[in-house]
Every structure is written in structure tokens, then in C-alpha cells.
Design a binder for these strands. Structure first.
Lengths: 195, 195
DNA sequence: TTGATTTCTTGTCATTTGGCAAGTGGATTT
DNA sequence: AAATCCACTTGCCAAATGACAAGAAATCAA
């Protein structure tokens, strides 16, 4: 089984420490290669999240608001670690589901194994913290970008910063991610194309 | 100097491990007691964040949107750790400022000292991860509550879940936190009082 | 290819929210 | 106590966005 992409990813994210061959082996053994077909679920609401390095593909997280409308809360691109922090670390049932938007490949592991690695492999501890911090920071920035902007600005921002989302995701999912209806998004796209 | 509240807080947040007396001492030495007067800044935009256990008082984080309007991004209540994750962990200048809304007391330390503790005190490592996860989770939940709800619902939700915010914060700060103008918030309050 | 299903667009109209400016009331200063 | 400042409220109108429904386009299956 080829786990080189996973190893490369971990190594490239902790430049200051060389990951020893022994650590590489220990880490590799804890992950299993996994594939998800389009629309398959990495995580279903109500379950606990695993820990998945997305090597190929595109995923989205979603939940439901108080009126039962599906709301896309996040998009994941390749070379990212995908997990739902609340359920993964706090052992609570997830309120979010995570679904493959395109066919996906990557490496999967569980909380128990991540925890073992945290306690036995210092390099992985650093890596794990970096991933958590990075997700948090990305999430905050995304949230901040949404605040006090019009629907049209939010759309324009997303086009500037994450154009790839539009290659893969459905417009209705992008619409709910941007906090608007698909109707509004459609109209905004029409307006922008005019210009 | 009395650091007992800090120790109690750390101990109470890692129930599975008893923090050794030695660890307690090491941790204590890394924190210094600090007070902030009303409107003082814990963090100014452009600087790097410290790490502050808020034992008494109430704080808020804010930044500016693309049009230069001040936007409150977060409120902190006592018995919480206050830090700005992006600047603290990634060593970037903060885009947010954090300010005391009421007089505040607590215990302050720096990234270097937190990092030293992470590497030397396993209990503190666990504690630090828990704080980070908790902030992330709280932030996500807050964000989700904002999505796909009307201004009035967002107000009602905040009243239900964080009534104390209304005791301390100015309405214009609450308004920007809720993603609306102070005018709208005022109107909404009027409507709700009618009922 | 054809029919069925889903996604996206568009029109009409109602509702929500914002912008602006004036006004009220309380707190602070001198 | 008077003057000043600041937070908050309110009225009026405009602009942005949503709800609903119908239609066009794309996708998928047989």
C-alpha cells in the first residue's frame, strides 16, 4: 500500500523537524487507504468523526438549520486534513455530515489511533496541533469574510479566493455556504456576467 | 501572588489526570497576574496575541470590515482562555483587537512560555489542546447559529444562550456581532418587547 | 435517442434590512 | 445646574434579498 502522499504531507508541514524513519513507519501503520465515490459520506450526522487526509478529490460539510434547510458549512480541497473538531475531540455526536462531492482518495484513521500517535510520536503531535490550528484559522477567516458584506460581495470574494469550488460544487450548496438562496446566487451571477 | 484560580481552572479541565504538584509549580511560574481597566486592550491589531486566562470580567474581540466599520467578532466571559489563534500559533500580526468591556483580572503568558509548557508538561499539553478545541467548537456553533436565520432569530438565540452579554456589552457591539446595524437591533428589541 | 430527474434561471411580488437624520434620555464634566 | 457627550431609539424611504412558481438547461438512465 502506498502511503507516500501522506508521509510527504506530514513531512512538508513540520519543516523544522525531520520525521524519523521510525516515526514514519509508526504513523503509516495507523492510517488506512480509503476511497469514497461521489456522494459517499465520510461522516454522517449523529456519528463521531474520523480523521482523514484528503489526497485527491473535493468534499463538503453540511448540516440543517432550524427550519430544516440544508446548509453547507465548509468545503475541503485536496491536501487538507478533514475532520469535525467537536465530535472528534469531544466525543460528541456530530451535527454535521461530510460528503464527497467528487470521487475522493486519502488516508483514514480514528481518534484512538490519533491519540496513540499524539502520545508516542512527538512529530505527529506537532503536526496534529498544526492541523487543528490551521482549520480553526481558516474557519475564522472564512467567517470574517462573510460578515458585513452584501451577498454580491460574498460571491465575488469566494470567486477570488476559492474559484475551484465553482468547478465542483452545486450552486445550491455554494448558495447556502454563502448564506443566501440559490435564487439570489443565480441572479448575482447574471449581474456579474453582464459586467 | 495567588494563582490558585488558574490552577483550579487547569485541574478542573483535565479530570482524567491529576496535575502533579511539580507541574502546578512549573505552570504557575510561567503565568503572571494581570489586570485590565475597562476599555484597555489585551491585544491590539497588528501585534501578536498572548495567552490569557480570564478569571474576572468580560472582553470582546473586534476588527474592521472592508468599509472600515468596526465589527465585534467575539465575546469572552470569565473562566475562559482568551487568545487569537491565528496570531498566537502562526506568528502573524493579528487582524483582531481584544478589549476589556468591564474591569478584568486574570493570568497572562506568552507563546514562548506556552510552547515550553507544551514540551515539558504533558498535562498542560492536554489542557492546551482542550482550550483550542473548545474555542474552535464554540466559534463554529456561534457561526452556525448565524447562518440562515433572520436578524430577529439571531437576536432571540443570543438572548437564550448568552444573556449575560446584554448585561455588559453595548448594543452597537452586539449589533455588529449579530451581523446587523444598531438601528435594526433597536427595532427588533422594540418588536420583541411588544410581545 | 428518449424520457425522467435534477439543477439552474427568471419573473413577480412581499418582506426584511439598511441609510440617514432627528430626537430622547442618561451620564459626565466643569 | 448647565453644557456636553454618548448610547440608544424612531420615522421615512430605498435597496437588497427571499418566497413561490414556472420554465429552460443539463444530466442520467433505460
Amino acid at each position: 500500500m502506498n502511503k507516500q502522499p501522506l508521509i510527504n504531507f506530514i513531512q512538508s508541514n513540520i519543516q523544522n523537524i525531520k520525521v524519523s524513519d521510525e516515526a514514519v513507519l509508526t504513523i503509516s501503520e495507523m492510517f488506512e487507504e480509503r476511497e469514497y465515490a461521489k456522494n459517499d459520506f465520510l461522516l454522517k450526522a449523529g456519528k463521531g468523526s474520523g480523521y482523514f487526509f484528503l489526497a485527491e478529490g473535493f468534499m463538503r460539510a453540511f448540516t440543517f438549520d432550524s427550519e430544516g434547510n440544508e446548509v453547507t458549512t465548509y468545503f475541503y480541497t485536496k491536501n487538507r486534513v478533514v475532520f469535525e473538531a467537536a465530535s472528534f475531540f469531544m466525543h460528541q455526536p456530530s451535527t454535521e455530515s461530510i460528503q464527497a462531492v467528487t470521487p475522493c482518495k486519502g488516508y483514514y484513521t480514528t481518534f484512538e489511533k490519533v491519540n496513540t500517535l499524539f502520545h508516542t510520536v512527538p512529530e505527529f503531535r506537532e503536526f496534529g496541533r498544526l492541523m487543528l490550528v490551521r482549520e480553526f484559522v481558516a474557519y475564522k477567516q472564512q467567517t470574517l469574510a462573510m460578515i458585513n458584506k452584501s451577498a454580491e460581495e460574498r460571491y465575488a470574494d469566494l470567486m477570488d479566493t476559492n474559484k475551484e469550488i465553482f468547478q465542483y460544487a452545486q450552486l445550491k450548496h455554494i448558495a447556502s455556504f454563502l448564506g443566501m438562496t440559490d435564487t439570489s446566487l443565480s441572479r448575482i451571477r447574471k449581474e456579474i456576467n453582464k459586467k
